[in-house]
Amino acid sequence: MQLIQLLIDGIASGCIYGLVALGFVLIYKATETINFAQGDILMLGAFVAYSLIGILGMDYLTGFALTVLIIAVFGFFLDAVVVRQIIGQPAFATVMLTIGLGFIFRGFASIYWGTDIFSFSTPFSGKITEFNGLIISYVNLSIIVGTAVLMFALYFFFTFSKIGVAMRASSENQLAAYYMGIPVKFIFSLIWSISAGVAAVAGVLLAPITLVDTSISLIGLKAFAAAVLGGFGSIPGAIVGGIIIGIVEQLCGTYENYLFEGVREISAYLVLILTLIIYPRGLFSDKAEVKKV
């Protein structure tokens, strides 16, 4: 029974990792760059939600929706104004650029909102439900349900909507998509905006657990483990990878005595390194490796 309890907690925190990883994957599939600032965008999302709900006193759902919208628009212009300028330059440049952007966001957040720890009330705060002796908090439930809903929404968007199909085409082959009349640059900015929006969702869902401060941007780093484990390029892979990381963390935390001290904090990174060494393609990569010459 304790194990199932652990699994539920693990799945909930894993969903957050998964959502952030999803943002990495979307951007990577489309533009072959990794956004190291993904965790910082999540942090911005949480802060914006705090401003809207906590300070301005908006209704939770309205505040949630507005936050996602604001961050998504922000993501769109982030690509259109800044990131687009260095497309075609070596990978190293994008890595450094997005790391720099992350620092700017964090610096901005601590100047604008301050370095205190904030919280805002949600309909789920402090409520729990009991089921056969299992304790499930509403917050965890909201994370799991929210992730599932978002996954379905994205799935339908990418499969059936015209823009979604254009996005998939652009990530398969930029040039061909361009020749087919797809506005590739616009599409890329749109993908940035979706992945920023997803990060904002994760930020708002996470806020009741970790509370809001600048350190939550570190979640972005753990989400790398989720993305790599899931095969960096597969959307279901990102979520499954995230859930596995979440569960591994919970297990490591509980059975710390049998392993070694402090294993919980680094378990995500250990999984990341092991995946890269043993099975760098990840669990869900669908393409065979072919070297290009």
Partner: peptide, 22 residues
């Protein structure tokens, strides 16, 4: 007087060099 100034400037310098003086 904000402590956030340091990371902010750090990031701004990094972004500036990557974009304008690689």
């Amino acid at each position: 007087s904000q402590p956030g100034l340091e990371p902010m400037l750090f990031g701004l310098i990094l972004v500036f060099f990557i974009l304008y003086e690689p």
